[in-house]
Simulated assay, not measured.
Amino acid sequence: MRILLTGAAGLVGKNILEHPELGRVPGTWLTPTRAELNLFNYPDVNRYIETHKPDLIIHAAGTVGGIQANMRQPVRFLLENLDMGLHVVEAARQNRIKKFINLGSSCMYPKHASNPLREEMILSGELETTNEGYALAKITIAKLCEYIHRENPEYRYITLIPCNLYGRWDKFDPNRSHMLPAAIRKIHEAKNKGIRQVEIWGDGQARREFMYAGDLADCLIRAIVCFDQLPLIMNVGMGRDYSVCEYYRTIADVIGYDGSFVHDLTKPAGMSQKVVLITKQKSWGWTPSTSLEEGIRKTYAFYLEREEYS
């Protein structure tokens, strides 16, 4: 089997490639760098797929970031994710690649949808404004995969919708990162500098679901092995959430920070709750194994290992 993995240098890609059970998948992994494959150029993408003829494509590449980055650059988040997705999916179709795994995002769900979020809720309401561009791109690519399968059932173009992710190879820069790695960095720096208060955006009551990226990698390894049993669209998550305050307190306990937290109520907090329903995931036979505390310990250890962050 030849597997093309886009985004091999990103959070998801690196966690897949360092997964201890990668050997369960016999065959060759194609992991081109940006210099080797420009996903923004359709002729390049088509030529690469035509030349290498992968049996399966996992599209994990994306332009990602937290609330600040999404609000600051909505054009970039919409266009870059749309371009990459359209190019990879269409080149796969043109070259008769029958197996495709597209990674969506829980941002695809409406802002006022009742939780837990069911796959059928996509396009049922208004999107969260703080990441609308990113969500629109992800929805479009997911629908394209659905349409391709509808026109020709031989093409099983699957969309997996992970909840928020964190873990090894994450981004910790507050200007680019999601809430959990940004909080790890803030609390670490507060402890080291003797700062007795750490700021939280909003009142801290918004609820979020975060899954360790190594668990998503585990899910994807199983998805390759058990591809034919996958639903066409499936949430991947923990099935439970925590408040932002609970995440900050757990991180503080792991790091050993005994200061207090203050709330900036002028800052956006995003959706009030976002937790995915994992009924299909359970029926398929997979559950994540990393607890929040264990995942934060592993992520914090990685943060300390990285010279540029320490």
Rank of each mutant, 00 (worst) to 15 (best):
G65L: 05
T6E: 12
T6A: 07
N115F: 08
T250H: 03
I141W: 09
L103G: 07
K171Q: 14
N152I: 09
R93C: 04
S283N: 11
V262D: 08
G125H: 09
A60Y: 08
Y155I: 00
D253A: 12
Q273F: 00
K267Q: 15
F227P: 06
N41Q: 02
C145A: 05
R118P: 00
R24H: 01
I148W: 06
D241E: 13
A69K: 13
T31M: 04
K186L: 14
I3M: 02
V244S: 07
L79R: 14
V75W: 06
I233T: 13
E50F: 09
G214H: 11
I200W: 10
Y257R: 02
S291I: 05
S272Y: 10
G7F: 07
I187C: 04
K191T: 02
T266F: 02
G194D: 05
Q73K: 15
F261V: 04
L265Y: 10
I101H: 07
N235M: 02
P288G: 11
Y109F: 15
P54L: 09
W201V: 00
A91W: 04
K111W: 09
R168H: 12
S260T: 11
E128A: 07
C226K: 15
Q197A: 11
V244W: 03
G239N: 09
Q197I: 12
T28V: 14
D241V: 00
N235T: 05
R249V: 01
Y309F: 10
D44E: 15
M234G: 10
R93E: 12
G285T: 07
Y300Q: 03
N164T: 10
L304W: 01
I255N: 00
A223H: 00
K186I: 06
R176S: 11
I221R: 07
I296R: 02
L5Q: 11
